[in-house]
């Protein structure tokens, strides 16, 4: 398994209230899987994704990425593990505002172990692939939303991770760009990668092999034809 979530739960404790954002969610993804977690706003999608990405420790349950529990690693080892194993794509793109397209794509290289030459070749390949060559010297502020998200995708794939985690990557895109981005994710899964996409958008469903519905932090059984989902 590339990614296993076993009965993970997360409660945000505020000043006076506690929000049970995610309760007992279990999902398994193998190589080539493309799973869409779908649900309304506030149902806990981002929380699931952050826990899966080693960025947010669940209160209970286990997360295994390629068999490794990232929360069992010391912080710096976890960061470097994350940079090698996982690519992230966010709705807000989260590009570094003062780095140009090429530099943004190269930035995960700071954490990786590959040679600068290899990293550079890989970045140029990705920029070419995501049709950004003519924009590579531009700052994010000078790009269209689609170009920004394609830059974020290229950056996510720089260290050739096995797992790609996407949080509402099409939330700020028009229909055309949405289809393009979802197409890239599908392409990544078809080439052997693993994609976990969380979105409220129905349009992602046809691109995914499998959809998990999330309501109030809990998964509800729903299977795309031909796929089975483990549920808790």
């Amino acid at each position: 398994m590339v990614l296993q979530l076993e009965q993970v739960s997360k409660t945000y404790v505020g000043h006076s209230t506690a929000v049970h954002a995610v309760s007992d969610v279990s999902i398994e993804l193998g190589a080539g899987d493309f799973v869409a977690v779908q649900g309304p706003s506030g149902c806990g999608k981002s929380t699931v994704l952050l826990m899966a990405g080693g960025l947010l420790q669940p209160d209970s349950g286990n997360v295994l990425i390629g068999g490794t529990n990232p929360y069992g690693l010391p912080p710096d080892a976890r960061a470097s593990f994350r940079s090698i194993s996982i690519g992230f794509v966010f709705q807000q793109f989260h590009l570094v505002p003062y780095l140009n397209v090429l530099e943004n794509v190269l930035s995960p290289g700071l954490a990786g172990t590959n040679s600068p030459e290899h990293v550079r070749q890989r970045a140029e390949h990705l920029i070419e692939h995501f049709r950004l060559a003519h924009r590579q010297d531009h700052l994010p502020g000078e790009l269209s939303s689609g170009e920004r998200q394609r830059t974020a995708l290229a950056r996510a794939l720089l260290n050739s991770p096995q797992l790609l985690l996407a949080d509402e990557p099409t939330g700020n895109l028009d229909r055309e760009n949405t289809d393009a981005v979802l197409g890239y994710l599908k392409e990544f899964a078809e080439s052997g990668g693993t994609v976990l996409l969380v979105t409220h958008d129905d349009r992602a469903v046809p691109f995914a092999k499998r959809t998990v519905h999330l309501r109030d932090g809990r998964t509800t059984n729903h299977m795309n034809p031909g796929f089975s989902a483990a549920s808790g």
Binding site: F81, R82, F88, H94, L95, P97, P108
Partner: peptide, 16 residues
């Protein structure tokens, strides 16, 4: 803080 979060997410260590 936003870019720091991003850099953390893409794997930069706290030391970096």
């Amino acid at each position: 803080s936003q870019e720091i979060g991003v850099l953390r997410a893409i794997g930069l260590s706290a030391r970096q």
